[in-house]
Design a protein around this nucleic acid. Structure first.
Length: 271
DNA sequence: ATAATCACCTGCTCGC
DNA sequence: TGCGAGCAGGTGATTA
């Protein structure tokens, strides 16, 4: 499920049940995720409290006195708060039990996600060290994409999905943002004007912000809820609508593959 | 260095 | 009802 809005929604939903709660026990049922869950994880967490949860791109960083736990949800991961007596399902790989009696439960059918540990130190974790700016921050602006794209022949859609360029723009929202900005996903990143990049940046921020708000409305009952947060309910203009009519001009939306990812666009509106 | 492809997994849908 | 093919929200590693 997770694009950036879902990760942010997850953070906000679990935060009150995690921060400043003492971790009593870690149960790892399946350590073989994208990378093996480190053996020393329980040692670094049990008996301690997390001070805070931060987000960097789609990575969640759980901070405590010794360092931070890094969680990524991959393609199918989720984090939920459940009661202590709730039996785990087939894909519930890791439980973080709290003294207060609830559990933070990591579920991930496809196991593309990860649960890692980084000791407190000067060095940044390799997964985090080459990441581009946060899309919702002020220093993400049109000029950044314009400068980074000069002499690049890559299509603009995979370009904005590259985490070295900007983090957190996944397939759904890349499609949606390009539609809003009226930019054809196939065109070379290096041939897009500054003005058009400014429009694209505005569209990316807009799409992500709206999705977070939509997700936020569904996370009231995060504890014990069955998940399915917001974005499915959110109105998607192009993603998943290949062959249907463009909401703006009624032209038939095209569906192609770019970098192996499903890409939907209107060839009349998006030039 | 850059762009495209592969790989990691499970579950679901579709056509036969 | 069963079976194989193809696809899915991500992204690091490998190949040209």
């Amino acid at each position: 499920m997770p694009e950036l809005p879902e990760v942010e929604t997850t953070l906000q939903g679990i935060e009150p049940f995690v921060t400043n709660h003492q971790v009593s026990k870690i149960n790892i049922r399946q350590a073989r995720l994208r990378w093996v869950v480190p053996t020393k994880l329980p040692l670094m967490l049990e008996g301690l409290k997390f001070h805070k949860i931060n987000r960097r791109g789609k990575y969640l960083l759980f901070e405590n006195d010794f360092g931070h736990m890094i969680i990524h949800l991959g393609m199918s991961g989720s984090l939920r708060i459940v009661k202590a007596d709730e039996p785990p399902g087939k894909h519930d790989h890791v439980d973080f039990c709290f003294s207060a009696g609830h559990i933070l439960r990591f579920k991930d059918p496809r196991r593309f996600g990860c649960v890692l540990w980084q000791d407190k130190s000067q060095t940044v974790h390799p997964l985090l060290q080459n990441l581009g700016p946060e899309p919702l921050s002020d220093n993400f602006e049109g000029k950044h994409l314009f400068l980074a794209s000069r002499k690049r022949s890559i299509s603009i859609k995979p370009f904005i999905m590259d985490s070295k360029i900007v983090v957190g723009v996944g397939n759904i929202y890349a499609n949606e943002a390009l539609f809003l900005a009226k930019i054809n996903p196939k065109i070379s990143a290096g041939r897009v004007s500054l003005q058009r990049y400014e429009r694209l940046v505005f569209a990316i921020k807009e799409v992500l912000k709206k999705a977070i708000i939509a997700g936020g409305t569904t996370l009231r009952d995060f504890k014990g809820s069955d998940g399915s947060p917001g974005y499915f309910k959110q109105k998607l203009n192009v993603y998943g609508r290949g062959g249907k009519k463009c909401i703006s001009c009624r032209n038939t939306l095209r569906e192609i593959r770019l970098s192996q990812r499903s890409t939907v666009y209107c060839n009349k509106c998006q030039r």
